[in-house]
Design a protein around this nucleic acid. Structure first.
Length: 875
RNA sequence: GGGAGCAUAGCUCAGUUGGUUCAGAGCACCUGCCUUACAAGCAGGGGGUCACAGGUUCGACUCCUGUUGCUCCCACCA
């Protein structure tokens, strides 16, 4: 069989993914096995794959594939999120390109466009996940706005409303004038802005010659002022106490109030109070029963309270009003000023604090079990440091504003009655029924009811995700939810710990009386080399699809995993992905080597091969134990690294070299079969990390039946191993490395055969792996001697002397200098050890194990010194 | 302003209960090899006062305190 020397993934990846799909290997249905469940953090339905998804989904696939290979019934549920704000923003932008304004469309027309968009772009991201190798049960794909999920959302809303947990209220919300919706605090990004601080004169009502000077960054809001406020302890403004002042331009009298909230040192110590447009002012307004005057339209232009500025944009007004105030002599001064301004995460438009009627969910009581379960490790966070963050948030949890002024989403199932009041119901019919009861008017028809225009926050559907994907809200007793819930691991980014993870836990306890998952693995944020978050807008993110085309899906998976310790941000570096690709190629070539060997059934197994097999099978077991330990502790990159070293260093660099027959020589049957068996196990160990390459090799390694696959094979089981053999080999490997170094130093080519003399002493290990040393170093004869031979290159491993006879004379001066240096170092080392051992407090306090170690160090060093001294003497 | 975290080789990062599995990996670098599986490779090598200053301890990369620098979260800046 001719096998290419470079691994080419293109066809191979596609071939095996199709094969897995065709044989339904990803499918999971309840059975008698233990379930292992992951629900995908649903990506935005119209989104495209970015590096964060790559990391996240690689990890999930590693977990799910490993679970599948360890006898669990593994179920990974995929799906997408309707992402109301993000998607609506995209649709609006697309319509704008076509010259259509959202405001010219009816709700129905707009939704038609939104659905068209969703059908067209929706699910692209899921197709991209397939390229990565994601082994999701695609038959279970859900969408947060599909029928069952929508029903679940409405059902939960009605239920919470009936429990008295949902209420309507006027609140100061973050208004996004771009998207014309309220957004949550979490969706506001504060940015430093170079602005101005304006000092305005508010004349006293009873004495126009005197005035209060107010410092503000937002002069356009003066038209909404309903008071100015001073600190009662501020002597310099005491003259304002009990006075009334006149708002410039508006020419309106407002009172001077006093509150300690005002910082005496800031500006002039006089604060203008605009309850409708500032959170703190709103609180002052509540406290002193001030009127709220909202001067803005929803799009950020001024309304009729804006007087002559009505219909102008807020920022235009700021400029204009600055000029007008100056002309009127009411501007004291203007200073440059840096302050932080909130921007909408979605539209990047400065947000406007605005009073508006919103729906809220009371979070206090409902969140208690979720709080406790994380504190008590019923739900474990990995890494655990996020427990603190979680506690901090849960302790100060605020009511959740769940309404959004959008059309794309689940419409709030509240219906307003003609003569005031409203009813809440899952369907129009039920609403009408309730409305008739409430109004005692049986003639009421649907046309008389007006459904709330708002949509629910996206997270109000995704917080039900681990339940709703198994339809556990609509059918709380169905087989799937009973079997798969609670799920096992959730893999997500720490930035949505509160938006999503905390709320899922809350919903889990409220609707299943149980946690939604046992472990939460929080990945880092993928950043570029400058430490910036990778994002489309910055254009600093490589295209994952291109990356996979270039480096193979397996290579990219490896690259992501190697730098992804839990919870730490990862600085993405192409060299990691290169490493992944190189590793694929390494395995591929190891496979080529093994596959290329001819068997001769008549030859006996060489002793060196038998020894190599004994060593490697022990090494394999110790690595398996290590890998399993890493997995248990969610140290995935460590598990990856251990597997990588087992394959590359132990198997390829050591084992294969040990058993490799000479050029064009055949191999014995026994060794070949065992090697293939090792290789088989190695591919299985590596399969969760790099599914495609391992499947390809596994299939070619031995004859397989149709319908067999590595992904449904069993993970090699860990067994006990002999530590002594591994230790003995460590010594042998040191000897081999030392001989290679001698060859390199003395320019003895590898093909030139040499001899080796060993002067054993009581410190020399019993097993020396002579056959292997001879083979790997091309040694014709190994002999044990008592006397130092003439004209030899010599070296010392631990405290055993080795000699290689040389044809040319050895430079004695050089040898002496080298040995002297070695001697000095070892003596220094011994001094350090002796100091410790002569320290009574050390001997008295240190545990026996440590003492033993120190004594061993002492003995070793002494033996070594003796040997070096002897050598020096003989020179 | 409140909270959390980080600082280890040129770069990206591991380092689990304080003690030879402890100073490590990969990349980069240097030297020598196109040795018939692999140059996406092989062999060898250099490189770190573990941010700084104290303290606890027989012993500190590891624990404590402080300093400096950076990051994130929350609140918020008229």
């Amino acid at each position: 069989m001719e096998i290419a020397s470079k691994y080419s993934p293109e066809q191979i990846e596609k071939k095996w993914y199709d094969y897995w799909m065709r044989h339904n290997f990803f499918r999971s249905t309840p059975d008698e096995r233990e379930p292992y469940t992951i629900v995908i953090p649903p990506p935005n339905v119209t989104g495209v794959l970015h590096m964060g998804h790559m990391l996240n989904n690689t990890l999930q696939d590693v977990f799910i594939r490993r679970a599948r290979m360890t006898g669990k019934n593994a179920c990974w549920v995929p799906g997408t999120d309707h992402a109301s704000i993000a998607t609506e923003a995209k649709v609006v932008a697309k319509l704008a390109e076509d010259g259509i304004k959202k405001s010219d469309l009816t709700r129905e027309q707009f939704l038609k466009h939104a659905w068209d968009w969703t059908y067209k772009h929706g699910g692209i991201i899921l197709e991209q996940l397939k390229k990565l190798g994601a082994s999701c049960d695609w038959e279970r794909t859900c969408f947060t706005m599909d029928e069952k999920r929508s029903q679940s959302v409405l059902k939960v809303f009605v239920d919470l409303y009936n429990k008295g947990l949902i209420y309507r209220g006027v609140r100061m919300v973050n208004w996004d004038p771009g998207a014309q919706t309220a957004i949550s605090d979490e969706e506001v990004n504060y940015k430093e802005q170079q602005g101005k601080l304006y000092y305005l004169r508010y004349q006293l009502a009873d004495d126009p010659k005197r005035y209060a000077v107010v410092a503000t960054t937002r002069p356009e809001t003066i038209l909404g002022d309903t008071a100015v406020c001073i600190n009662p302890n501020d002597p310099k403004n005491a003259y304002l106490k009990g006075k009334k002042v006149i708002v410039p331009i508006a020419n309106k009298e407002i009172p001077v109030i006093e509150d300690e909230y005002v910082d005496i040192e800031f500006g002039t110590g006089v604060l203008k109070v605009t309850p409708a447009h500032d959170v703190n002012d709103y609180m002052l307004g509540e406290k002193y029963h001030l009127e709220s005057i909202d001067i803005f339209n929803d799009d950020g232009t001024l309304n009729e309270h804006g007087l002559q500025y009505a219909e102008m944009d807020r920022f235009e007004v700021r400029k204009k009003i600055e000029k007008d105030l100056e002309e009127a002599g009411l501007m004291e001064k203007v200073e440059p000023y840096t302050n932080s301004v909130g921007f909408s995460e979605r539209t990047d438009v400065p947000i406007e604090p605005k009073l508006s009627m919103q729906w809220f969910l009371k979070m206090g009581k409902i969140s208690e079990p979720a709080f406790m379960s994380v504190m008590d490790d019923v739900v474990k966070l990995h890494p655990a440091k996020f427990k603190n963050t979680y506690r901090h948030w849960m302790e100060s949890i605020k009511d959740w504003c769940i309404s959004r002024q959008l059309w794309w989403g689940h419409r709030i199932p509240a219906y307003y009655l003609p003569e005031g009041g409203y009813v809440v119901a899952e369907t129009d019919e039920k609403a009408l029924e309730l409305a008739r009861q409430k109004t005692e008017n049986n003639n009421l028809s649907m046309a008389d009811l007006r459904q709330d225009e708002d949509c629910l926050d996206t997270w109000f559907s995704s917080w039900l995700w681990p339940i709703s994907v198994f339809d556990g809200i609509n059918e709380p007793c169905n087989k799937d939810i009973a079997y798969y819930y609670p799920t096992n691991d959730l893999v997500t980014a720490p930035e949505i710990l509160f938006f999503w993870v905390a709320r899922m836990i809350i919903a889990g306890y409220e609707y299943r009386d149980d946690k939604p998952f046992k472990n939460v693995y929080l990945t880092g944020i993928v950043r570029d080399k400058q430490g910036r978050k990778m994002s489309k807008s910055l254009g600093n993110s490589p295209d994952p699809i291109e990356l996979m085309d270039q480096y193979s899906a397996d290579g990219v998976r490896m690259g992501m995993l190697l730098c992804s310790s839990a919870g730490n941000d990862i600085l993405f570096d192409l060299s990691q992905v290169e490493l992944g690709r190189n590793f694929c190629n390494k395995i591929w070539n190891a496979f080529r080597l093994v596959k290329g060997w001819q068997v001769d059934e008549t030859i006996e197994q060489p002793d060196s091969s038998a020894t190599a097999i004994t060593w490697f099978s022990n090494k394999l077991q110790s690595a398996l134990a290590e890998i399993e330990d890493h997995f248990e502790k969610y140290r995935i990159s460590d598990a990856m690294m251990s597997s990588y070293k087992l394959m590359w260093d132990d198997f390829c660099s050591w084992y294969l070299e040990m058993i490799k027959p000479g050029y064009q020589q055949p191999i014995d049957q026994k060794t070949l079969q065992t090697t293939i068996d090792f290789f088989d196990r190695l591919t299985r160990i590596l399969h969760p990390f790099m599914p495609f390459l391992t499947e390809e090799i596994w299939q070619l390694l031995q004859p397989r039946n149709v319908g067999e696959s590595i992904m449904i094979s069993e993970m090699p089981e860990k067994n006990s191993f002999d530590e002594k053999i591994l230790k003995a080999f460590d010594f042998a490997s040191e000897v081999i490395i030392a001989i290679r170094a001698q060859r390199a130093k003395r320019n003895i080519l590898n093909k030139e055969q040499i001899e080796l003399f060993i002067k054993k002493n009581e410190e020399t290990p019993q097993t020396l792996f002579d056959g292997i040393v001879a083979k790997l170093c091309n040694i014709g004869n190994i002999a044990y001697i008592d006397e130092k031979p003439e004209n030899c290159a010599s070296f010392i491993v631990r405290s055993t002397e080795f000699f290689i006879p040389m044809e040319e004379n050895v430079n004695k001066e050089e040898e002496r200098a080298k040995l002297q240096k070695e001697l000095d170092y070892t003596r220094g080392f011994l001094d350090g050890v002796l100091k410790k051992l002569n320290n009574e407090r050390f001997v008295g306090n240190a545990p026996e194990k440590v003492l033993e170690g120190e004594r061993k160090k002492k003995a070793d060093a002494e033996a070594r010194i003796t040997v070096i001294e002897e050598q020096l003497k003989s020179l």
